[in-house]
C-alpha cells in the first residue's frame, strides 16, 4: 500500500483526497460529518492504526475537526500523516462582555460530531482536549471532562477566534 493506492481506496469511500508531498499534507475531506466513522474504519483497516492529533480549526463560517492518523504497522505508510477532516456548522457567536452579569451572553453549547475513540483508542485524551478548546462535543466519547483547563474555563472555548477576555476577569481574588 502506497500513497496513491491509499488515495484511490479512500476516494472510493466518497472522500475528497489531496496529497501535497512537499508540505507533507495528505488530506481526506469528508463533507458529511455522519460518514466520518465509516471512513475512519476504512482507514484503520488500511493500516492507519493510531491518531497523532485531534484538533479543530475555526473558520468564519464553520469549524473543521481534524484527526491526524498515522501508521506503525504498515511500512510504506509510516512516512504519512493522514488528515481526516470534516466541517461542522457553527453555533451563535459570542456576545460582548457584560460587566453586570460577568458573562459573554448565553452559554454556547458544544457542537456535536461523532467520536472516533472506538476506532482509535489513542484519540481519548486528544478528543478531550479538542472538546474543551473548541467546544466540539464528541458523541460516544466515554469521558469528556476538561483536561488542561480549569473547570471555571469550561464553555469559553478559548481557541475559537472569537475568544476574548475582559481585563476584570484577570483579577486574582
Amino acid at each position: 500500500m502506497n500513497a496513491d493506492e491509499l488515495k484511490t481506496a479512500l476516494e472510493a469511500e466518497g472522500a475528497k483526497v489531496t496529497y501535497d508531498q512537499k508540505r507533507k499534507v495528505f488530506d481526506v475531506f469528508v463533507q458529511d460529518p455522519s460518514r466520518i466513522k465509516q471512513v475512519a474504519r476504512k482507514m484503520l483497516e488500511l493500516g492507519l492504526d493510531h491518531v497523532v492529533s485531534v484538533t479543530g480549526v475555526d473558520y468564519p463560517d464553520r469549524i473543521e475537526v481534524i484527526w491526524h492518523a498515522s501508521s506503525y504497522s504498515v511500512d510504506s505508510l509510516e512516512g504519512l500523516v493522514v488528515a481526516l477532516r470534516t466541517p461542522i456548522s457553527k453555533g451563535p457567536p459570542r456576545q460582548a462582555y457584560d460587566p453586570r452579569t460577568r458573562t459573554y451572553g448565553p452559554a454556547r453549547p458544544p457542537l456535536p460530531v461523532d467520536s472516533l475513540t472506538d476506532v482509535w483508542p489513542s484519540a481519548l485524551f486528544l478528543e478531550r482536549e479538542a472538546h474543551e478548546m473548541f467546544g466540539i462535543e464528541f458523541r460516544g466519547h466515554p469521558d469528556l471532562r476538561p483536561i488542561l483547563l480549569s473547570d471555571d474555563f469550561y464553555g469559553k472555548w478559548p481557541l475559537r477566534k472569537d475568544f476574548t477576555y475582559d481585563k476584570s476577569e484577570l483579577k486574582v481574588a
Binding site: 484538533t55 481519548l124 486528544l126
Partner: peptide, 27 residues
C-alpha cells in the same frame, strides 16, 4: 512531536497546533 500549521497569508499563524510526546503517552 507533531506540528500542524495553517497560514491564511497573514502575519500570524491561523492555526498553530502541536502535540508533545508526553501527552500522547497518556492513554
Amino acid at each position: 512531536i507533531f506540528f500542524y500549521l495553517r497560514s491564511d497569508g497573514g502575519k500570524y499563524p491561523y492555526r498553530f497546533r502541536w502535540v508533545t510526546p508526553s501527552f500522547r503517552n497518556l492513554p
